[in-house]
Design a protein around this nucleic acid. Sequence first.
DNA 1: CGCTCCGCTAAGCGCCCGCTCAGCTTCGGC
DNA 2: GCCGAAGCTGAGCGGGCGCTTAGCGGAGCG
Lengths: 213, 213
Amino acid sequence: MSTAEETGGDAQPWGEVTPDAARRLLVAAVEAFAERGYHATTTRDIAGRAGMSPAALYIHYKTKEELLHRISRIGHEKALDILRTAARGEGGAADRLADAVSSFVRWHAGGRTTARVVQYELDSLGPDARAEILALRRQVDAVVRAIIEEGVAAGEFDVLDVHGTTLAVLSLCIDVARWFNVDGPYTPEEVGALYADLVLRMVGAKPEGAGRR
Amino acid sequence: MSTAEETGGDAQPWGEVTPDAARRLLVAAVEAFAERGYHATTTRDIAGRAGMSPAALYIHYKTKEELLHRISRIGHEKALDILRTAARGEGGAADRLADAVSSFVRWHAGGRTTARVVQYELDSLGPDARAEILALRRQVDAVVRAIIEEGVAAGEFDVLDVHGTTLAVLSLCIDVARWFNVDGPYTPEEVGALYADLVLRMVGAKPEGAGRR
DNA sequence: CGCTCCGCTAAGCGCCCGCTCAGCTTCGGC
DNA sequence: GCCGAAGCTGAGCGGGCGCTTAGCGGAGCG
């Protein structure tokens, strides 16, 4: 488990965005969208943060919305990757659920700037882009639900409503991006550990665990 | 417990907004802000939904921001009222916490249009208005924390981190406004009951309760 | 009946938005 | 050393924004 600022494994967060200028613009857009919201951010502001003229933006991106779309897709893919890695881990369902929640939460808290845009600016996208992102979100939901279902089947968990509990677990994690660091005395790691414990309680996991922590 | 669409007790939701035209404008603004967000909503749209010309808005409100401020303050006061009513109730801490969560969640789910604006457009407000609203939110936090502290003191709850758990409980409830009804098979009452159960698990409440539900 | 006031509208002001385009610089290929 | 492509800029376009202002119609009142 790394202690990098942006949890998830990459050396640098947006390394996959390839012309350097395009990456600088995208990073600038993430910051601006996170601070003021998509609609309150101007293309002049984004270009200015990247040290470029307003027109430069349109060499690398067709519209302002394409920037949001790219940010959202990359962010969701990373989030999905984090959850899948935890889900594939060793140990019982309780261990894997705790890992998934703590790493997912660490990503939302540590990369709050990114997570905020990814999770809260979704319906500033047009219908096609939104549909694509919603498909990724359904996969996120499926990964978490699968762990919970396995735990129930193995007798590790005591859950009345698997669908509703999955919804609540994800909701809890995602909302970290809204409140974290506003006046917070917690580190991302602390919130991750706290939330892993709370989620294990929510699913009625037997407290003994399998020798972890 | 009423089954009114807008849970909370009022016969009509925005009855306290007094000139009729001002109320119609405010209701129109709530709908528009909830659908598109504050910054993407135009004063022409708000006035249009209220069946008036754009200029009419400025007879009743000084700016577009004042509309958001009024909506946010009234909404937060209602939310606080709901929580305080539950906190003042009879029974042990577990009963009161379950009541608080289920009624708070019912408000967020049933009045999702309002709740969305109240909970997610907060930082479109200017510094003064935001500070006023944040004071209300601190009171919301205090009400929930008090119930949890009482439960811990009475030996009803098993909580490691009262502050963090309070944060998580509120976060869970508030985020209902984001996801509810998107494609939801749940009624507000069902989500309220589900969440009350989950929260009791989070605080480690003894399962027997005091004879309710 | 005439006057005043109030709620509202039609028109529009000044501004800044997303986005475009002609032209400048830079640089690799030959 | 010349050429074309690529990356970027300065200037600016059409349009829609928040908000203002002059004036209209009708209700209340003497």
